[in-house]
């Protein structure tokens, strides 16, 4: 039962992380490798705020959202947009995000060192499980992670389908030049998408230490998994990350339990290989991901 709950929680957090990657790829055509570090920043916002202001990390969810949205927005404006404006390919922009990822890794580690050396906080390894509440017999993190992911996915879906802003975002994803000609401000829309994606990553980062150990490399180490979520879910539909998060979360936590009960406990350390396998299988057999597959079946 414990691993079932773990899997559910982990799924929601993966979905939140993948949501941002999918959003950025859809609207600006960039695979953002630095997204993992934005998640880590969310965790450090939670750490800093809870340490200095001594409230529950839940209290700082909006703060994490805002900080990470700002960081992601700045990454877009300062790093991506100047190079994109010169007509760089999506490959080159991927390299740009790697460069940004290196810078943010450095910044996060410098900050963590600073917290440790100056304020003597355990900033290299932290867990907030003790702050969590219980609701209907389960940890609060389960409910809040799903609430965040559900609210975000549903509201973004409604926005895409029923508002002019959403229409413009969909148009931008298909024919950027035509969208400009029709009056859409591509830079502003892209900026908005990056901010929203960063905010979602911030929520995931802020919630992550409620259940799982966090360290300065937590987001970096999960980036391949996030890519698996985003690509497996497919970038065509925004519900992709939610479903892919469920599949991968369960495969990684619940699935490995199942396999180890058949084969033996020796396989447990290799649970991190599961997302890679899913990613490679997806790219090979289902290149449009789940949502592309579903869309194609419906015609």
């Amino acid at each position: 039962m414990a691993s079932f709950i773990d899997a559910l929680t982990y799924s929601a957090l993966l979905g939140l992380m993948g949501f941002g990657l999918t959003l950025i790829r859809r609207t600006t055509g960039v695979w953002n490798v630095a997204h993992g570090e934005v998640v880590t920043i969310g965790a450090y916002v939670a750490l800093t705020a809870t340490s200095f202001l001594s409230h529950s990390p839940y209290f700082f969810l909006p703060l994490a959202f805002i900080v990470c949205a700002a960081v992601s927005g700045i990454i877009f404006l300062a790093g991506i947009e100047p190079i994109r404006a010169k007509g760089a390919s999506s490959m080159l922009l991927l390299v740009v995000t790697i460069a940004i990822s290196l810078i943010t890794i450095a910044a996060i580690n410098i900050y963590a060192d600073y917290l440790q050396n100056v304020f003597h906080l355990a900033s290299k390894n932290f867990l907030f499980a003790r702050f969590d509440f219980t609701l209907w017999g389960q940890m609060g993190i389960l409910w809040s992670a799903w609430a965040a992911l559900g609210a975000l996915t549903v509201s973004y879906y409604l926005m895409l389908q029923h508002t002019r802003l959403g229409l413009a975002l969909r148009a931008l994803a298909e024919q950027p030049a035509l969208a400009i000609v029709m009056g859409a401000n591509v830079k502003a829309l892209s900026f908005l998408s990056w901010c929203l994606a960063g905010g979602a990553a911030g929520l995931a980062g802020c919630l992550f230490p409620m259940r799982f150990q966090c360290h300065p490399g937590v987001g970096t180490s999960m980036i391949a998994t996030m890519f698996a979520v985003s690509i497996f879910g497919g970038i065509e539909k925004m519900y992709g990350p939610l479903f892919a998060g469920l599949v991968l979360g369960f495969a990684q936590i619940y699935g490995i339990d199942l396999i180890s009960s058949w084969i033996g406990p020796g396989v447990i350390p290799f649970k991190d290989l599961i997302p890679m396998i899913v990613l490679l299988l997806t790219l090979q057999f289902l290149p449009e991901g789940l949502s592309g597959f579903v869309g194609r079946r419906r015609g």
Binding site: R164, L167, A168, R170, E174, A179, A184
Partner: peptide, 12 residues
């Protein structure tokens, strides 16, 4: 916009 309906194209 190939993925949008004609009506959405006009609205855009």
């Amino acid at each position: 916009f190939p993925g949008l309906t004609v009506e959405e194209n006009l609205k855009m």
